[in-house]
């Protein structure tokens, strides 16, 4: 085993502003991996003292083995939903890591090979609700990386969706998945 993969851990960071639902997205991703795909996970988060606004960040470590250190050391994947989040965490990505940004919220992207999509606008177009942007971003992330199975992410989203919003969330997930269908598939890290 090479040093990098010695721990067989994949590190994901989902970051944005408070209220964008990125911590919930992290929980859903973690549930998809742990409950439906049977992997080990550790999910952590940080947020400011504000209930809304401020910055918030979720981290998910996914592994087939034991996970000791519970936080991201060098992220394999970063979803940045705000300029501040991108500025703060992009430099921590692994050399061959993947950056996904909401292109309308993040104007300055430090990496040339980042995936830039208008995630929040896509959410509004698909569901009429900007709050579903977090689910769209999960669709994009999973569509590109196969980090968790599509079945797992779908089940995890529906299980977390408040009653009556299952259809809306399904639409948001589909929107994310289809948006990246045409894009070059990123090396399967899982």
């Amino acid at each position: 085993m090479s040093g990098k993969n010695a721990f067989n851990r994949i590190e994901v960071r989902l970051a944005g502003e408070g209220g964008q639902g990125m911590i919930l997205a992290g929980v859903i991703l973690a549930e998809a991996a742990a409950i439906y795909d049977g992997k080990n996970i550790v999910q952590t988060q940080t947020y400011g003292p504000e209930a809304r606004g401020g910055s918030s960040k979720a981290e998910v470590i996914i592994s087939d083995g034991e996970i000791d250190y519970p936080e991201v050391i060098n992220a394999d994947f970063l979803v940045a939903m705000s300029q501040e989040a991108c500025d703060k965490y992009a430099s921590n990505l692994k050399k061959d890591g993947l950056l996904i940004v909401d292109s309308e919220k993040v104007r300055r992207v430090p990496l040339t090979n980042a995936i830039k999509l208008p995630i929040t606008r896509m959410a509004v177009e698909a569901t009429g609700k900007s709050i579903t942007a977090n689910v769209v971003s999960l669709g994009i992330l999973v569509g590109l990386t196969n980090l968790v199975s599509r079945e797992a992410i779908q089940k995890a989203i529906i299980a977390r969706a408040p009653k009556g919003t299952e259809e809306v969330n399904q639409k948001a997930l589909d929107r994310g998945l289809t948006a990246v269908e045409g894009l070059l598939s990123v090396k399967d890290k899982a």
């Binding site: 973690a30 742990a34 080990n40 996970i41 550790v42 952590t44 519970p70």
Partner: peptide, 9 residues
Amino acid sequence: EVIAHMRER
């Protein structure tokens, strides 16, 4: 705090 707020299987 990390243990208090982290989620694990």
